[in-house]
């Protein structure tokens, strides 16, 4: 199912995950995430998309996990190895969640906080990072005159883009977004989607979309998950025009889910 390519940033090989309570599992997932592209993971709730994102970021609590098998390679490093430095891993792979979680600080501080924690205190460099990441998140033009306002005063769409900017400030390699626009109106959604198209030039993006239509709009590559299995993967948008597996066809045409 997976065609290896030189341009793949992440390779998932024979990955299986079982939680202690047995609720949600992933079974033998093989998937390549192309560099400088948007890979969407879509399918009905409970299919394992979020579990996979959490696994890639090592966000699962080891106590919850019953069993884990296979490999997830970032470049050539197996990120499931116990030797992996989690702080460093999460710096390389940023994550944006469905509900924007802004820190109760100013807009500027929301972005500089992570950098300061890592020891960056040079004001010029911090200012640069603020402007660069806000521009990349398509937010700079809207809010550059009020950087010292509290971040909570921003609209929902702006808060979500601020969260994206905060992730970008740390200069990750990969950005993972779990239904980033599920709480946003269509205009804000469009802005976030547009900025993703810009961002993929520099970053590798994994997106769990909130609808099949968003999956089709944004995907360079797409993977359909159902009940813990990767049912179908396509490079390109073929999965939305001519899926090869009946389960995919049924899902994208709205016959279930």
């Amino acid at each position: 199912m997976v065609t290896p390519a030189m341009t793949d940033k992440i390779k998932i090989e024979g990955f299986s995950l079982q939680y202690q309570d047995g609720t949600e599992t992933l079974r033998n997932v093989n998937l390549s995430i192309e560099k400088n592209a948007i890979t969407v993971l879509f399918g009905p709730a409970g299919g394992g998309k979020s579990s996979l994102l959490r696994s890639i970021n090592r966000l699962n609590d080891p106590e919850d996990i019953k069993q884990i098998d296979g490999h997830i390679f970032l470049d050539s490093e197996d990120i499931l190895s116990p030797k992996v430095d989690l702080i460093n891993l999460r710096r390389k792979i940023g994550m944006v969640f469905a509900r924007p979680v802004v820190l109760p600080l100013t807009i500027r501080k929301n972005i500089t906080y992570g950098l300061e924690v890592m020891g960056e205190h040079n004001k010029a460099r911090l200012d640069d990072a603020v402007e660069r990441s806000l521009r990349q998140a398509a937010l700079w033009e809207e809010i550059n005159h009020r950087l010292d306002d509290p971040a909570v005063a921003l609209s929902g769409g702006q808060q979500q883009r601020l969260c994206i900017a905060r992730t970008l400030a740390l200069e990750p390699d990969v950005i993972m977004l779990d239904e980033p626009t599920s709480g946003l109106d269509p205009i804000s959604t469009g802005k976030v989607e547009n900025s993703l198209q810009e961002l993929k030039k520099q970053y590798t993006i994994i997106l769990v979309p909130h609808s099949v239509q968003q999956a089709a709009r944004t995907a360079d590559n797409a993977a359909f998950f159902l009940q813990g299995e990767l049912i179908e993967f396509s490079r390109g948008k073929g999965i939305f025009t001519a899926p090869t597996v009946k389960k995919t066809e049924d899902y994208v045409t709205g016959r279930f889910g």
């Binding site: 239509q213 089709a216 025009t241 899926p243 066809e249 045409t253």
Partner: peptide, 9 residues
Amino acid sequence: QQPMAKDLR
């Protein structure tokens, strides 16, 4: 309807 797959075809 924003059709997909066979519906779109």
